[in-house]
Every structure is written in C-alpha cells, then in structure tokens.
Design a protein around this nucleic acid. Structure first.
Lengths: 134, 134
DNA sequence: AGTATCCATACTGTTTTACTATGGAATAAA
DNA sequence: TTTATTCCATAGTAAAACAGTATGGATACT
C-alpha cells in the first residue's frame, strides 16, 4: 500500500524541476518529461491541474511552456499534492464514537499537514537531517 | 483524496475496542461491529487479516471471539495498518533522478513511521496535545 | 444434536490509477 | 500568411483497490 500515489511524487518532481531553471524562459513539457521520466501525456494532465490550481502559468505556442505562478518560497508541497490529488486527508476518525481515536487521528492529520507545509524553495535543504522539525 | 483508507481506520478502531475489554473473555465480531459500526462481514475480513499477522488470536465456537495476541503496549498502530492494508508506504521518490527529492521523501517516510509507532496502550493519551513528539 | 461462532472464498459495483489517443486552439517563426 | 510548435481539453482503457455482500464450511460449546 503506497500512501502517496505517483501523481503526488510526479507533481512535486515536476514543480521542483521548474523551480530550478536558471534562465527565466518557460519550461516545456517535453523538457520536464525528459528530466523526470514521466510520460509526456500524463505529465500534461498533471501540469494542467497545477495550472488550474494557480501554481503554474502557461505560455502557448512555439517556445511556450510553464513557469511558476509564484516564487518558490510561496508554494508548499501540500499545495502541490492537493492540486494533483484533490483535497487532502480529511480522516474520518469518527468510528466507534470514540473521542480518543478522534483525537488521535486529528493529531495525525495536523502532523501530516505540518510535514507538507515545507516550501518548494526549501526542498533542497531536506537533505540536512531534521531540518524541518514539526 | 483520503490518505488513509477506511480499512486502516477500521482496523485501529477494532483493535482499540478489543484492547479496552475489562473482562478477559474474547470479544465477538458482532460486539465489535456494534461498537464501531463497521459492517459485520467486512469486519470479519479485517479481523482475519489481523489474526494472520499475529496481532489477534481467535477462539472458535460458541462464546468464541478475538483477543489480543500480545499485550497492548507491544502492538503499534503501524503494525495494525500494515496488517490490514499491506506493507506500508515505500515511496518511490526516485523520479527525476534527484537526490534532493529522494532525501525529502525518505525523510517524510521516517516521520510517518515515527507517528505510527505509537502503541495501542498509549492511544488514550493522544488526547493530550503534543504527547507523542517525533 | 444443535447452536453459536469464526473461517474461507468468491462475487460485485464503484472509484481510482496511470496511463494512451485524438484533435483543437494559440502563438511564434518562416 | 502559412507552418510548425506548443499547450489544452476530452475521452477512452486496462488493471487494481475499495468497501462491501453472500454463501457455506469448520470448530467448539451446551
């Protein structure tokens, strides 16, 4: 059981790739696909979702492509995942009418959110152990 | 998108219910179903998985039921989830051949494991905010 | 023997996943 | 102005997972 689908992984990988472009030309789908090894057609759908969620802007036509809609320090991993997978984990812990379990799941939920609130610009720092304490 | 299926929620709810029995008689499926409002037939499957993972023992025949296979302080939420959902999140963060993302996902994975390493016996304490720091 | 309980397997309708396919719309370059 | 390039939108699809339901069998207590 994979707790995150490849959509989430792909989405973050694509956004990360775009965020690391040095020239400020828009990045093309085929470039991103080549870098990330995501299928071109599938990637298009994900990028489309990311654009509709206002995380990317697109330029059509020759020399077109995608750019971040905001700077990388204003885009969180959570936003990316939610953009491609739909609204995130609302755990229905209300099973057995147990307040204790409700608290537990709600706490898990908060911790999860905290983990994914890391910004795109901070990703490269995650190689430093325990950088992003929650 | 729910990050945990109802199977996981159900599994934990069932195990928690069993762990809170005061008399030391085995707890019957119908009792657990009544407490948790999980469908009887479906619950049987989940309990069966939990038994096969050696988290529960069963007693057949009249007055039979289920008991914990070990004491509640030796059973983690992670084990329960893995028993009903299959081996947990091995995130394939190896997309785009980016070491940075690999580190990120691996870190997320560790944090997730830490969150779910809480023992069944400790669950009731989760109502105390920030009890189980990771 | 009869009843209560767990056990095993199979079936089912719906949704999600991870794509592929097709063609259209916009824009830049020739 | 044509053509090539790029994104855009929609639909289709095979396989798996989800959340059950259904049926009957095995075991053990009374």
């Amino acid at each position: 059981m994979a707790f995150l689908s490849s959509k989430a992984i792909y989405g973050v990988a694509a956004m990360y790739a775009i965020s690391r472009t040095t020239n400020n030309k828009p990045m093309q789908v085929k470039e991103i696909a080549a870098m990330t090894h995501i299928s071109h057609g599938y990637l298009e759908q994900l990028l489309s979702s990311l654009r509709k969620s206002n995380l990317l802007v697109s330029i059509r036509g020759a020399q077109g492509g995608y750019k971040l809609a905001r700077s990388a320090d204003q885009i969180s991993v959570l936003e990316i995942i939610e953009a491609v997978e739909g609204a995130f984990y609302k755990i229905d812990g209300n099973v057995g009418a147990s307040t204790i379990l409700e608290y537990f799941w709600s706490d898990i939920e908060n911790k999860m959110c905290a983990m994914f609130e890391m910004k795109l610009s901070e990703l490269y720092r995650s190689s430093q152990p325990y950088f992003y304490e929650i």
